[in-house]
Simulated scan of single mutants.
Amino acid sequence: MAKFSFDIHASEGEARTGVLKTPRGDIRTPAFMPVGTAGTVKGLYMDQVRQAGADIILGNTYHLMLRPGAERVKRLGGLHKFGGWDGPILTDSGGFQVWSLSKLRKMTEEGVTFQSHLDGSKHMLSPERSIEIQADLLGADISMQLDECTDFPVSHDKAAKSMELSLRWGRRSLEAFGDRETQTLFAIVQGSNFPDLRKLSAEASIAEATSGGYGGFAIGGLAVGEGHEAMCETLSFTTPHLPKDRPRYLMGVGKPIDIVEAVYRGVDMFDCVIPTRSGRHGQVWTDRGPYNIKRAEFAEDRSLLDESITCPASQDYTKAYVHHLIRSKELLGAMILSWHNIAYFEDLMARIRASIASGTFEAFVRGFRAGWPSEKG
């Protein structure tokens, strides 16, 4: 299996900045991956995603396998060609969506049988099928092992059993993935909020020697209702058990304050639907938290969305105009805010990388914490 070169250029405390090199291009870390659920980052053209500063996007196994179908995507040239994105793509395994969206699901050692949220049709997702979809049919540069998303809150015993199942599925995912020159596979560390389980999961994943082991390590099972402080605590006792020479990916996170705190604890990669999902509902993201452009105070506000962000969406439209678009339910309003929010998140990552490189990240974190509203953290 390919283990993409991961060069750490600078570090400060646990935070580090560098480059993950893939055959389709370099990924500057810490990196935020816009979510392209169904082969598109909602509301944006791919050149806008690239212009906003993204080096990599995320594709969704569950949604693409149901519609239009992974085999169809393969026939149409793979996800890169199908979606018009020539950079790296990471795909999730489908496990989280099965857990969160399926009307009915049955978990066994073999895999998970579930009912589609679209039409009720039944499907089987095993570690082997997940890898086939991600690596062979969609053509992902980075695939994820199939795991079970653990419920929260959960007992220690149930969390242990869930974690152990994910480890067994991870071994099967590795075997199915085999030896590939231009693609890699990430492990997913589980264990809920229990330090001993996170340690066991990390150590067992690192010990896997099949096909050369994993190319990176993800931290799963967070941002599922545990809250910001518990997430930070879990990261603090998890990242020390992960290899320093491999990228660390925090799945499904998150708010800007979550990202800053996770980088502070040694995380390198992130994804979240927040920028586009909240943009479609009128939320504008800033270093001081989000605000809703639909509020009456913006009806005659001639200031720009955010002139500090180098993005047409941020610099070319007044708050009054976007307020009007969103209140009128015009598609352009959702498009502008989604574009701005992606650009803001990518600008945040650029500032984080620059502060680590210059040795000022501690000061950056202190300032960010001070400006973030506590009720939104």
Rank of each mutant, 00 (worst) to 15 (best):
R171L: 15
S155D: 13
S126H: 03
D157I: 10
P127H: 11
T150D: 09
A135R: 15
S173P: 06
L138W: 06
S166C: 07
K161I: 00
D157F: 05
M144C: 02
L137W: 02
D136H: 12
L125V: 10
T150Y: 06
R172C: 11
S155L: 09
E175S: 11
I142E: 02
R180I: 07
E148N: 10
G120K: 06
R129N: 03
D151Q: 13
P127C: 09
E128K: 10
K122W: 12
E175Y: 02
I131A: 07
F177D: 04
E132D: 13
Q134S: 10
D151Y: 12
P127S: 12
R180Y: 01
D157Y: 03
W169F: 03
L167T: 12
G120D: 04
A135H: 13
L138K: 08
P153R: 10
M144V: 06
G170P: 03
K158R: 14
M163Y: 03
A159I: 13
G139T: 11
A140V: 06
S126D: 01
G120S: 04
A160M: 00
M163S: 09
S173W: 03
G120N: 12
G170Y: 00
L167I: 14
I131G: 06
S126Q: 03
E164A: 14
H156L: 14
H123V: 11
R172A: 08
K158N: 07
Q134H: 12
E164L: 14
T150A: 15
G178D: 06
F152L: 14
E132Y: 09
G139Y: 08
D141M: 01
L137Q: 11
A176P: 02
L138Y: 02
